[in-house]
Design a protein around this nucleic acid. Sequence first.
DNA 1: TCCTCATAACTTTTT
DNA 2: GTTATGAGGA
Length: 736
Amino acid sequence: MTTSLDILEGLNLPQQEAVQTTNGPLLIIAGPGSGKTRVITHRIAYLIRVCGVNPHQIAAVTFTNKAAREMRDRLQFMVTRDSDSLTVGTFHSFCAAMLRRNGNFLGLKSNYSIYDSDDQLNLIKRSLELSELDPKSHPPRAVQSVISKAKSSMVDALGLSQRAETYFEESCARVYYHYEELLAQNNAVDFDDLLMKGVQLLQGSEEVRDRYRNQYKYLMVDEFQDTNTSQYLLTKLLTGEAQNICVVGDPDQSIYSWRNADIRNILSFQQDYPSTKTIALEQNYRSTSTILEAAKSLISSNGMRLRKDLFTENDAGDPITVHEAYDEQEEAGFVISKIKDLRNKQSFKLGECAVMYRINAQSRALEEACIQQGIQYRLVGGVRFYQRREIKDLMGYMHLIHNPQDEVNLTRVINVPPRGIGAKSLKDFINWCRNNKISLYEGIQRTYESKISGSQDTPAISNRAVSSIGNFGEIIQSLVTLSHRVPITELIDQVLEQSGLRQSIQNSDDNPTERWENIRELKETAREFDSETPPDGLSSFLERLALVAEVDSYEDSEDSITLITLHQAKGLEFPVVFIVGMEEGLLPHSRSMENELELEEERRLCYVGFTRAERRLYLLRAFRRGFMGSSGPTMASRFLREIPSSLVTSESRQLTSDQPKISSHIKRSEAEQLKPQAPRIALGTGDEVRHSIFGEGVVLECRQTNEDHEVTIQFSSEVGLKRLLLSFAPLEKVSH
DNA sequence: TCCTCATAACTTTTT
DNA sequence: GTTATGAGGA
């Protein structure tokens, strides 16, 4: 047994209090960089080592697998041998395991498939057909989002049709109904189902509920601000009478409302558990005070907030650098050469630098700049690994072998690589199966058998197709048999060989090496998995792959920079952070600019970005940006204006080249002089102006924005057309 | 049946 | 600058 002193050492008072509050409901409001993960892990260690709680009785639910793994690693260090019996995982993986064991209550066989959003979309398109609705007037993606929203709030098809207010919602309810039917037929669930069915299981079976409640005496939920209704209900159902539930969150970092997360869960928590003790962690240990002040100032523009007073004892550090580039190429070029500078002159490691952006498409210019300047980079996300064609194909076979009822994957792979079963044959074959009231898999097996016995009981399609289907059936059958005996790695090899995938990938003319490399990477994952050898190999392998996010496989590396979306960056921290694309329409994104709530979420997203930075923060924008092929002028993000100018220095783009430097101090004081809401100089269309860097030009347009004026100027120098904010731009009127 | 080429219609963010 | 779809030819 350890004394509590060891565990409390190095924690500040509120942190200590959070660790020691072990009984009853506890809400921890944790600002960025406030040592949240530390508190959670120490609290678990405290429970085990000081209170003597059996680790088997503790569950910690996180948002990503990476967070889960990190927590497990830290705990391994603190509670050594006991850490294995702790339950640490995401909501989705927790539910997946629960359904695997108890799914039969809901008519789910334990070998069910988990469909990702591509599979889901596929099935929704088929449900649209069954509902006799036109996909043109019912975009599958829109339907998908309605259904997902319904599931997240525990509404079934009937419920949706009852509360439908528009024709579109009514149609969605119809599609939803067919969609559910198809999922059941395929013995499959989607991501939302994992949560919804988890709740249904606990609601529907007292026995199961009591079993889990008896096991988990202590429950902790991280990133609570990002939970949706079904996740919230799940925590409520799991909490036994003792109500030893601890949730940790920060409403200011809620960035997943589009995935139906609901910040109001934090308020509901206080209402549902009236004896809740609330502790705020307000001291930031991560960032310089300059960065923290900027972040605080930014987020204070949001209307909907819980009061919080962040502070830090860290130094002021360097001012935040705002750089305005001409276009995205120059923006990327500036970032990368700046990073080189930081490495060469200030001994930062490349691994300490991250570039963050709003949308994945922005990574392109950055990647190109990295390649051009010879800087190693690590791209998180982008075209996701598990969505690559060769991976999806291989995994399609794996899913089919594990769950032959899975017709989405069956139809996906039956003609991959091409083996003469075209769209027409497949359609006729499916109809033949439906008419005979057998599943596709049974149909395939029957075709295979009749091929051997020479029976004529086959679908009315070409002999070639019949024979191909028969062969396919034989391959799958033998792989199914094999799957019970051999490790995953070997199964993968056999699938690649027998299906002909290996040949087809290696002989393909588009990127055979890269595609085969991806397959090898997947095999490597399988190899690692095999070495851990869980009893139920294929099941857990498929489950794990279905539930991993790209950020999960992210690992620190000393010698490459990180390119990452702002969303994925949550929970990470870097000494140096660049945020590119600080423009209206991008950050905040154009899709969220009409709605005040969504706009506030964009601001929170920006806040998350700022607070990832420990020592240096660079904010960039481009005057022109590529927009689906063509390019157009941009406006500076309103968020730039929400940072006190005293914290900012702007570097002109010339600083990167060899031209004489302009002292940033002079520039800053200029900006301060120009800051007053009423611009110092009045400009109108046609006025001639002089800019201290760009030279002389003519005003083409002058528009009032919130508290500022935006002027569009045609410069006579090579910089051409620019849009500038009057309060920031060093402009003078030229009089004749 | 399969491949190639043209076109249209998008691209937020992801467990 | 992408990716999903469709027509037409081998």
